[in-house]
Computed example of a mutant assay.
Amino acid sequence: MKRLTVLVASSVLLMACSKEEPTPEPVRPVLSIEVKSEDQESLGRFAGTIQARYESNLGFRVPGRIARRAVDVGSEVEKGALLAVLDPTDQQNQLRAAQGDLARVEAQWINAQANARRQQELFNRGVGAQAQLDVAQTDLKTTQASLDQAKASVNQAKDQLNYSELRTDHAGIITAWNAEAGQVVSAGQQVVTLARPDIKEAVIDLPAGLAERLPPDVVFRVAGQLDPSVNTTAIVREIEPQAQSATRTRRARLTLAETPAAFRLGTAISVTLSSAIAPRIELPLSALQDADGKTRIWVIDTQSQTVQPRDVTIISRTTDSALLDGSVKPGERVVSAGVNSLKPGQKVKIDEDSPR
């Protein structure tokens, strides 16, 4: 009897040991995102540059061959600074010719003046004729007019010689040269571009369709391409009325709300367009799961570190995101990847690299 009791106890012990303990559900690492309400609609991002609002295209007032350039692109110049010089040979010859004509006319004027004075003295003594006096006085007036004309020609020749030097009429920065030393240019031909750096603006090219339907509350955010932390807002100053035939774009010039020091002339910028919309929730398509003809997301309980499914309604979708109704609230955290392998109430570990 005692032996039987021992055998029964041993059997019971073996049966108890043969029962497996239930395996706990593994904690699954997941990627997640915090739901945020968006009240701005992006209309696109475009590359552009910082340019001066006011630019002057300068050229010589006389034709000639450029002898030398005094400054290079990027140089800062003051008012009256010398930019370029023409070969002055032609202007110098014109000045010499005008000075020679002036000397000849001055001699004629002196002679006419003496003759008129002599005829006046003879007429006063009663031995001169009135007709001869009239002719002498007329010659004097004619010679005086020729003298004035010769003096004007000399002044004009001096101006032409001065015009062989191209100088600035205001301070600025040289942004472009369109002619080189040795090149023959005509009067008024564009030679150099001078920009005034005191007022800067952003310049971008917009698609013609977008330029025509810009909403009135559109916001332009301008940021440096190399350093996006340097940014400001802007408003439209002007948009070209006609699209460029090659690119079908219209150039837009934007007035900056502020001008950071890093926004130098020629700085490459990125301009983002956005407009206000009704608040909405947008999630990536990887956060959605289709099950039993319904669409759902997995919401994380940050206190218990567990997940629960929630049915949602999609208002619209794009190639990589979906716009949802109000079934999910801002501030909640949802799983953004790997939703097909989750179970209700499953423990999860939020990946440290996931956005928060």
Rank of each mutant, 00 (worst) to 15 (best):
Q303N: 05
I314Y: 10
P284V: 06
S286A: 13
F263V: 11
R317Q: 14
L256Y: 13
A261W: 02
R310P: 09
P309F: 06
R251G: 07
T272F: 01
A262K: 13
Q308G: 07
S275R: 10
A276W: 00
P260C: 12
K294M: 13
T302S: 08
Q303E: 09
Q305V: 00
A291Y: 13
T318Y: 08
R296G: 05
I281C: 02
P284H: 05
A278T: 05
T259M: 12
R296A: 03
I314P: 08
S275P: 00
A257P: 01
R248T: 07
A268R: 08
A276P: 02
T255F: 08
T313S: 14
D311E: 14
I314C: 06
S286K: 08
R248K: 14
K294C: 00
T302P: 00
I315Y: 04
R296C: 02
V271S: 10
R248D: 09
S275T: 09
P284T: 09
L254H: 04
A278G: 00
D301F: 01
T259Q: 15
A262H: 07
S274T: 10
D301V: 02
V299E: 05
R253L: 09
P284L: 12
A262T: 11
S270M: 14
R280Q: 09
K294P: 00
L285H: 07
P309S: 09
A261K: 11
V312N: 05
T259N: 15
R264T: 15
R248C: 09
R296V: 00
